[in-house]
Design a binder for these strands. Structure first.
Lengths: 343, 343
DNA sequence: TCATTTTATGATAGGGCTAACATAATGACG
DNA sequence: CGTCATTATGTTAGCCCTATCATAAAATGA
């Protein structure tokens, strides 16, 4: 039928007996259209089944309705939580999501490549997922290109960029206190890579809790992983081989916690009877192993949604130019089966 | 510096002392440019750090460099494997990936909504991930709009659409034979939802293997799950409660296999000593539990890549109009720790 | 009532690029 | 050296929409 030749704004205008501009105004929900005219135009749009051409819009107006989401070596569960939520919200707001994988951009940071990709596509804004949001050079670059950027999980006051962060420190603090309140005194901690700010934040929360509860920090109980299952298992092995092994292990993400559980199960250590294991993030894997992980929920979906909102707002004309900084402070411990008082 | 006003093709043309069209031809890698001219233009592009404007390109040429990837209620690991791989390949080919979540499109299939979203964005092509690729109504719709579509994991000869499929039947057959060859005779099977073609295919493979090896099919050993960890655990419980319980369980995806392992561990059944468990897909979870899952690898990454290739080719002018149908027949069993000969 | 503000609509001009055709330069060959 | 094919480049006209400014209509007020 009318498939080959898409309807254009011109035809709608004719059908409604108005100018293209009026149709455009209706489409963009501007105020200056009489109610009766608006209705007529909307009827014409519906009748012709008209859909505005994004490309033309982007070209003419400068706004593309395209939001970028860039990441770097993501954990699958984190990525999909992020993508799914961002996507849902994009759709609600009439945007589209363009995913950019910057994984093979080395620390050398191939500026040319990134620039080429990002600046040719006229994104309305860009969401930088961790750990990209901690990459100063990249932030600088974005500031230069002038794409409105939202940093996820990290802020940097040197740049005028919006951000949505989670209080990692407080979350880790809360979880550690929870462990201590249950009676644990020897709590192993597996931190993330030292170069990532949230690794540090989580460790700080852990240490502060120990201090506040009057427990000596034992450096032997603090090991570093890289947020993967594999290193979680290795560091778990290390902790379990200690002559006086911990009664609980707090891994600073779920993948590593799953690794610790695997390590314990290989040694036939009963969880949670002989060893408690807790994680961080509440990603899909937390509920997909047995015993299921007790973990701190990181509100990934909410944060993704907030990021999309910010870009949507920043793109709007009413924006005052100030970066938006959101802190999500909903700390919630998801109780499952991997945690119990010490024997 | 030169950030506010992006460089346009015009400036490049001036700098190189040629017409815009020649620059355009260089950009689009057409043949009809003299080598010396091409070099001059390329130098100008590099010098000015010019990046073509996608929107303008899409508007003028009809090709947007945008490839859509639509899904419905994905498993996180499958989704991220898909996205990451499709993305990588898109980048290599200079495309961008626009993700579309059709999850809340009910079976009623809100045509208007989908149309509105998909047809306004001028996608060069659309990849339909399972189970969308099995949705006849949707396929019909796509055919009508005329977007080149690639079906992932499913074909439908009624439509002239390309597809990339995996031989689920053969893979399940191979795995089942492998179990039997190890000495297993009572093999439980947890199938997927009956409405999905690949659920059926996998079950057929399982049953055919039993038949070929002269083992009676026992319907009590075949249960249905919905590809989630949760139902895997429940059906695992069911199988393990059987008076004469199986020595091996073949779950038709990894999430369900993980559920079976959890169920066994709760009953202190040793894996693989007392029970072997195998999965299907080789997604991230297979290596993120202990014991790690022996599973059939589904080449998600390769298939995603192939899909992108197809769209890229179909978009090219040289295309002959025929749908491309690819079958990936690289069946590979990933041996890990969850499988052993029966006690 | 007419001047003045406010509100609603229209006309025009691109935005950056490519398709399609037109032209110019080059080469082949009798 | 002219003819014709071939290859290389240029010109022009849009693609579909929105910004901007201009105009028209309605509302306000003295």
């Amino acid at each position: 039928m009318n498939k080959r030749q898409p309807i254009t704004i011109k035809e709608v205008a004719e059908k409604a007996g108005v100018s293209q501009m009026t149709v455009s105004r209706v489409l963009n929900k501007q105020k200056l259209v009489k109610a009766s005219t608006r209705e007529r135009v909307e009827a014409a749009i519906a009748a012709l089944n008209y859909k505005p051409n994004l490309m033309a819009r982007g070209l003419a107006g400068g706004r593309s309705k395209l939001i970028g989401l860039a990441y770097y070596n993501p954990s699958p569960s984190y990525l999909s939580a992020l993508v799914v939520s961002a996507l849902k919200h994009c759709r609600d707001l009439g945007h589209h999501l363009v995913i950019e994988d910057l994984s093979d951009i080395e620390d050398g940071l191939d500026t040319t490549m990134i620039l080429k990709r990002l600046s040719s596509i006229q994104l309305d804004g860009l969401i930088l997922a961790p750990p990209l949001s901690g990459n100063t050079k990249l932030l600088e670059l974005m500031q230069d290109i002038g794409i409105p950027t939202v940093l996820l999980g990290s802020t940097d006051d040197r740049f005028k960029q919006s951000s949505v962060v989670f209080d990692d420190r407080a979350a880790a603090y809360t979880m550690t206190c929870h462990l201590i309140d249950l009676g644990h005194k020897k709590i192993g901690f597996i931190r993330g890579p030292h170069e990532l700010p949230w690794s540090r934040k989580r460790q700080e929360g852990y240490e502060q809790a120990l201090i506040d509860k009057g427990i000596q920090i034992d450096k032997k109980l603090i090991l570093e992983g890289d947020f993967t299952f594999r290193t979680g298992m290795h560091r778990g092995d290390d902790l379990l081989e200690l002559p006086d092994r911990p009664t609980a292990i707090f891994a600073s993400n779920d993948d590593m916690a799953a690794g610790v559980i695997a390590a314990a199960q290989r040694r036939s250590i009963q969880i949670p009877k002989e060893l408690s294991v807790v994680g961080f993030d509440d990603t899909a894997i937390a509920a997909a192993i047995w015993p299921r992980l007790t973990t701190v929920r990181q509100p990934i979906a909410e944060m993704a949604q907030a990021s999309v909102d910010i870009i949507s707002d920043v793109t709007a004309e009413s924006w005052n130019g100030e970066p938006v900084r959101l802190v999500n402070d909903s700390i919630h411990i998801v109780e499952r089966e991997s945690l119990a008082p010490p024997a």
